[in-house]
């Protein structure tokens, strides 16, 4: 454009073309579409590593509480990171995965503690100390027979939701 400004008597005509020449426009268009194609191909390829179906086993499981389980004593479901607790009002399940960085908490005299960064929780999962940002989540429990319960680890329920024993 600039090198055409000094053309004597220049005015809008087909001899003084549009600021972006037709050829330039096509070239830029081709370049832009190539860039867009690469961008979308990259985004499309990134879809692959994000698994749609997770390989973990079923997160619902059945557990039988021992007849003799005292009130307020956590029962650790075998092979699962869940503690079931029975009290006068019913049965509830508390996740045993620390909300800080995913270590497995262990039962203690007052509730649970995390060996990784020292977070402490009471029996209902409320944070007492340490860096854990949230209480331990409560999980959905459904009675399925005498002392038998089905726990769904996928389904979080508000704290205080108890299944009548």
């Amino acid at each position: 454009m600039t090198d055409r400004d000094d053309v004597v008597g220049s005015s809008e005509s087909r001899l003084s073309p549009h600021p972006v020449a037709r050829r330039d426009f096509l070239g830029l268009g081709a370049l832009g579409s190539a860039a867009a194609a690469f961008l979308f191909a990259t985004i499309g390829m990134l879809r692959l590593p994000k698994a749609a179906v997770l390989p973990s086993p079923s997160r619902r499981f059945k557990v039988v509480l021992p007849e003799s389980l005292p009130f307020e004593e956590p029962y650790l479901a075998p092979g699962r990171h869940v503690a079931l607790i029975r009290d006068a009002e019913g049965v509830f399940a508390v996740s045993n995965v620390c909300t800080h960085l995913g270590c497995i908490v262990k039962p203690s005299a007052t509730g649970f503690y995390c060996p990784c960064h020292g977070s402490r929780f009471d029996r209902t999962g409320q944070v007492l100390a340490g860096p854990a940002p949230r209480p331990l989540p409560w999980l959905a429990v459904r009675k399925a027979g005498e002392n038998t319960y089905v726990v769904d680890e996928e389904k979080e329920v508000p704290a205080g939701t108890k299944e009548v024993a």
Partner: peptide, 9 residues
């Protein structure tokens, strides 16, 4: 062992 964190990890 996925059930037993190292202490300290």
């Amino acid at each position: 062992n996925p059930d037993l964190p190292e202490n300290p990890a």
